[in-house]
Deep mutational scan, measured.
Amino acid sequence: NKFNKELGWATWEIFNLPNLNGVQVKAFIDSLRDDPSQSANLLAEAKKLNDAQA
């Protein structure tokens, strides 16, 4: 379904953000699993944090 596809894509993108540490990645992935409907918002937050830590 739509959420599974978005969840998978967001998970892959978060895993590939180079400036996040393992704890941050795990926290974002756990949040995605808790509420897949928020995948776009969580991915945006992860990208912002990644950019801030560059």
Rank of each mutant, 00 (worst) to 15 (best):
R33Q: 10
N41C: 11
N16H: 11
L32D: 00
F3A: 12
D30I: 15
K5T: 14
N16Q: 10
K48F: 09
A27L: 11
D35A: 05
L7N: 05
I29E: 02
A54V: 07
A46D: 00
L7Q: 05
E6I: 12
L32G: 00
D35M: 04
S39N: 04
D51M: 13
A46W: 02
K5V: 10
L17H: 01
G8K: 14
F3P: 09
L43C: 03
N19W: 14
S37H: 04
E6D: 11
Q53Y: 07
K5M: 09
K47G: 02
L7M: 09
K26R: 11
N16S: 09
L20N: 00
V23K: 12
E45C: 12
K2R: 12
K5E: 15
W12Y: 09
D34Q: 14
Q53F: 05
P18D: 03
W12S: 06
T11M: 15
S39M: 14
N1C: 15
K48T: 05
R33V: 09
N16T: 08
T11C: 15
R33A: 08
D35Q: 08
T11S: 09
A44Y: 10
N21W: 12
G22L: 13
A54Q: 11
N1H: 11
P36G: 02
K5L: 07
K26F: 05
F28R: 00
N1L: 09
V25L: 08
W12V: 05
E13M: 14
E45V: 07
S31G: 07
S39H: 11
V23S: 13
R33E: 06
G22T: 11
F3M: 09
V25P: 00
L43S: 01
N1A: 05
I29V: 07
N50Y: 02
L7H: 04
P18W: 05
L43Y: 06
D30V: 08
A40T: 08
L43I: 10
Q53R: 04
S39Q: 07
A10Q: 06
K26N: 05
L49A: 04
S37W: 05
L20G: 00
W12L: 07
L17K: 00
F3R: 07
N41G: 07
L43D: 01
F28Y: 05
K48I: 07
L17F: 06
P18G: 06
I14Q: 03
V25K: 15
N19L: 03
W9D: 07
A10I: 15
S31H: 08
W9S: 10
L17R: 00
V25I: 14
W12R: 08
E6F: 13
V25Y: 04
K48W: 07
D30Y: 04
E13G: 03
N4E: 14
D35G: 02
V25C: 07
L42V: 14
L32W: 04
G22N: 15
F15Q: 11
E6P: 06
A44W: 11
D30K: 14
A40F: 12
S37E: 06
F28E: 00
A40P: 05
L20V: 01
E45A: 14
L42W: 03
P18F: 09
R33M: 14
N41K: 14
S31K: 15
G22D: 12
P36C: 05
K5A: 12
N41I: 12
A52C: 10
L32P: 00
N41E: 12
N4R: 06
E6T: 08
A40I: 10
A52I: 11
T11N: 05
N50D: 03
I29D: 01
I14S: 02
R33F: 13
N50K: 01
A44M: 10
D35E: 05
N1R: 05
A46K: 00
S31R: 15
K48C: 09
A52M: 13
K26C: 14
P36N: 02
F3I: 12
K26I: 07
E45K: 11
V23W: 15
L20S: 00
T11E: 12
S39I: 15
G22P: 14
K5C: 15
S37C: 08
A52Y: 09
N1Q: 10
S39E: 06
A54C: 10
Q53I: 09
I14P: 01
V23R: 11
F28C: 03
F3S: 09
L17W: 02
D51C: 09
S37I: 03
L49M: 08
L20I: 02
N41R: 14
Q53K: 04
V23T: 10
A54G: 11
N4G: 11
L32C: 04
I29Q: 02
Q38D: 07
F28D: 00
L7T: 06
D35W: 06
D34V: 10
L43K: 01
R33P: 01
A27S: 11
L32R: 00
I14N: 01
R33L: 14
S31N: 08
A10N: 03
G8C: 15
I29S: 02
A44I: 10
A54K: 08
F15R: 08
W12P: 02
W9H: 08
L49P: 01
N50W: 02
L42T: 06
D30L: 10
F15T: 09
L20P: 00
A27C: 12
K26S: 06
N21I: 05
K26M: 13
K5P: 12
K2S: 13
F3W: 10
Q38C: 10
F28K: 00
G22I: 12
I29C: 08
G8W: 15
L7I: 13
L17C: 04
A40D: 08
E45T: 09
T11I: 15
I14L: 12
E13R: 13
N21H: 07
E45P: 00
E13D: 04
Q24W: 03
A27Q: 11
L49R: 02
K5W: 13
W9M: 11
N4Q: 11
I29R: 02
N19H: 13
A10S: 04
P18E: 06
K2Q: 13
A44V: 09
